[in-house]
Design a protein around this nucleic acid. Sequence first.
DNA 1: TGGAGAGATCGACGGCTATCGATGGAATGC
DNA 2: GCATTCCATCGATAGCCGTCGATCTCTCCA
Lengths: 116, 116
Amino acid sequence: MLRLMKSSLPDRVKGVCSPPAMPMALAKVDQSVEVLKALADPTRLQMIGILKRSAEPVCICDFTAAFDLSQPTISHHMAKLREAGLVDVSKAGIWAYYRLASRLEPKTRALLDVLV
Amino acid sequence: MLRLMKSSLPDRVKGVCSPPAMPMALAKVDQSVEVLKALADPTRLQMIGILKRSAEPVCICDFTAAFDLSQPTISHHMAKLREAGLVDVSKAGIWAYYRLASRLEPKTRALLDVLV
DNA sequence: TGGAGAGATCGACGGCTATCGATGGAATGC
DNA sequence: GCATTCCATCGATAGCCGTCGATCTCTCCA
C-alpha cells in the first residue's frame, strides 16, 4: 500500500481505472429521458410553464395565437407533451382544453417545480 | 353580463379564448432548454448520475469501458456535458478525469438532485 | 528518439424531429 | 343540409443528432 511518491496517478490496468458502476436502473433512466426530451424544447417548456401557472385549463387556440407557429406545429408539440404524460386534454364542443396532468409522478412534479 | 345558462363554454372571439401570456423570460427558457437537451439522453444522464454519486473524479476510460459504445461516442457525449457546463475536466498525464461542475447554478443543482 | 496508449476531433451516414401546407373529422350555427 | 370553425393527422422537407471508423495530438516510457 505504500505506493506514495511514485506518482500522483492512481494505479490502473490497461484502459480501466476502477470497475464501472451503473447506479441507475435502466427503466428509470429511459423514463426520465422521455420526460426530459419532452421538456427540452423552448415551445414545449413554455407551454408547460403557462399550464403550470394557469388555474384553469387553457384552450389550445391560445397557444396557437401566442407562439408564432403554425397550428399543426402547435398541435404536434402538445401531442408530444400528451405522449409524455405531462398534460391532460378535455374536449368541450369544438375546443380542446389542456391542463397539467393531475396524476404526475412525484419526481416529475418536483422536476416541474424546479423548472417553471 | 347575464350570459349564464347559455352554455358552459367561455365567451370567445374568433380563434382566441383569453389573451395569451408568456410567463417565462426567453433567456431563461433557452438556458433551461440547453441543460435539458444535455440531459435528455440515456448515456449522458447515466454519466451524470455516476459523476454525482462519485466522491472522486472519474476517468473517462471507465465510461468507455462501462457503456457499450465506441470511444469517440463517449468523448462526444462528455463534450456535450462540458459545453452545457455540467461537468469539469482535469487532465492527469494521459488521462482525463471528469467530475460534476463545482459552480453549478442552484437551479441546475436542484434539477440534478431531482433527477439522479 | 521512437513507440504506445489515451482521448479529442473529423467526416460520413442513418434516423429522428421541428416545421409547414394540405387534408380529414367533428361539432356548431345558419 | 350545408358552411364554418377548431383541431388532429398526413406527407414532405430540411436540419439536427447519435454513432462509428479514421486520424490527430499529447503524454509517458523504454
